[in-house]
Nucleic acid binder design. Sequence first.
DNA 1: CGCGTTGACAGTCACGTTTCTGCAAGATCA
DNA 2: TGATCTTGCAGAAACGTGACTGTCAACGCG
Lengths: 362, 362
Amino acid sequence: MSRAETSRRGSRPGRAGIRDVAAAAGVSITTVSDALNGKGRLPDATRRHVREVADRLGYRPSAAARTLRTGKSGLIGLTVTTYGDEPFTFTEFAYFAEMARAATSAALARGYALVILPATSRHDVWSNVALDGTVVIDPSDHDPVVSELVRQGLPVVSDGRPAGTLPVTAWVDNDHEAAVLGILDHLADAGARRIGLLTGTTTDTYTHLSTTAYLRWCERVGQDPVYEAYPAHDPCAGAVAADRLLARPDRPDAVYGLFDPNGTDLLAAARRYGLRVPEDLLLVCCSESTVYASTEPPITTLSLKPRRIGTAVIQVLIDAIEGLHSDQPVEQVIPTELIVRTSSQRRPPRTTVSPPRSPESD
Amino acid sequence: MSRAETSRRGSRPGRAGIRDVAAAAGVSITTVSDALNGKGRLPDATRRHVREVADRLGYRPSAAARTLRTGKSGLIGLTVTTYGDEPFTFTEFAYFAEMARAATSAALARGYALVILPATSRHDVWSNVALDGTVVIDPSDHDPVVSELVRQGLPVVSDGRPAGTLPVTAWVDNDHEAAVLGILDHLADAGARRIGLLTGTTTDTYTHLSTTAYLRWCERVGQDPVYEAYPAHDPCAGAVAADRLLARPDRPDAVYGLFDPNGTDLLAAARRYGLRVPEDLLLVCCSESTVYASTEPPITTLSLKPRRIGTAVIQVLIDAIEGLHSDQPVEQVIPTELIVRTSSQRRPPRTTVSPPRSPESD
DNA sequence: CGCGTTGACAGTCACGTTTCTGCAAGATCA
DNA sequence: TGATCTTGCAGAAACGTGACTGTCAACGCG
């Protein structure tokens, strides 16, 4: 009679259930479950036998059933910023790719997988997948999706500190203000007299914090702000804005660009106006792209360390999911790294032979 | 007594079950399910009433239960190429990002979400998530994961034609041979006498097909092959290989690079050797990156149309999942696009004024 | 020898849906 | 007016697993 439960609905030949394993091994379902999950108190002989039979049948436990039973799916949502309606684009290609790569790797190492989901979307899709938690990249002010997720009791960790009163479980971010101030000081040290900014019109905290830091710095040192803002999701607009910035009557002699493509756009614009970099124009942009190491000249970039951010976000989130959030702070700040290259150094090679105590002597 | 089944285990206040909705609406579970899914025959009044109550309670059906019952999870695996063990990297940043973006968008439009999974991984992770199908990018020859998936009866569609006898459900790819031949002809038309190739040491079909096409072309036109191969996952190796290629005694006067960073690497190497592009060296590389539009000079690129590939892969896969595979061919070829820029055009006005055989003159 | 303890398993329920079957009550028809 | 059909809904069986409870034998101990 124990054979009676051999799958009568064996639709898929490759799909053996736990019942089939139990029947084939001559034990009960409980024993199989315990043997495979290492739970009950079984003699090693039985455990090995069951595992062997399960292997032979190619048994794979149903993820859906397990999820239903345990309440854990092992899935983490990764929200990508969307612009417009259907298509979604990320101007920060390299940043997102690096961050997602690190996050995927970190999640996998702890037994979780990532699900790509668009930030703005019908609830339809979101509720169709069982998530244990969610990573949100640069959530907007009153993101309805985030609120809904939090309301359902799901842990939500954001990359970038949340704007307004968004109730995330935790967040990981850089100190963007310190980074901008550091860059502006770096440019001033290199001899810049009037530093311009290429910024965005979007309302995310990165853009906001960076821009206000710039304005405060200008106020502090008594420089008139010189900046152009453009919709960051439009690459053409970036090139146009770069051109506008260098075409102004109060043309800056140094520019910091907040977004990845700004470096090449500014370089191209500088060439159009016959400006030499770094002699006539100092250049820094925020980017993770390696192309800036081999442009002519190489461009100084600010790295936000997306790998570290992606890893940290995942660690904090999984800790929260598994209830180990005690030791981790809910707010984590990752340091940035300024990769200094030729574009922000006035004639560097001359001074390197001179005493090391005069780095900015020029 | 219908009230008796109001959630006695209401652990989460935000988690209302279908029972709670049924109780609150004064109908049965069946009616709720039918009303929300538009299935049964119900008067519109009841349907509206149930939906209203469900909305008021913030009811979200459990994805896990639905998956268990229906056998469909709405999840599609996206396999990313891995190198080494734990960390995985994709040299084709822009390609992958664009392709993944299009795939995500296309999947979402049809109610599916994408799960990022590493190609090489313990079966652990793969069997922990219920997939309806899988997209595989550039599967290797005898990929065990793919075989396992196919054995389980899951549809598998690959980006890039599968090597060997890999039993995928369908594949989508470019005509890489035609693309390479087109580029070589294009370079020859521009005046190239000796065309070099920067290729990879990996065994994927893209590299293989492109390289053999190059060798065949060389044989046809009677040119000695001039190429350097390097492990494509190592960006440093790419720069070194580019340098090696231009340092050869039989230095080519035109180069096609198979991978995304080859353009900048070759450009940098050309500068080191005092070669002008395109006067002394014609350059084309396969890339989706927009930076090549604003390099100095702009570099001609071959686009593999990752957006179209990503969309096509998802369409074919979902058709297979839903059993509509009749009208779609199982093998689909997406045309490439050659974006001709300055780097591959010998300046039209004064083309052969100076002897072209003095590459390192200045 | 009786009794408590422990090992090794089997039965059974519950997770939250979907869906099949079925049953009343009204509508339609011969 | 009874017989058949449609409408509107309820009951209950799965889906495949994990966990709790129960059972039965063996064993140690006073």
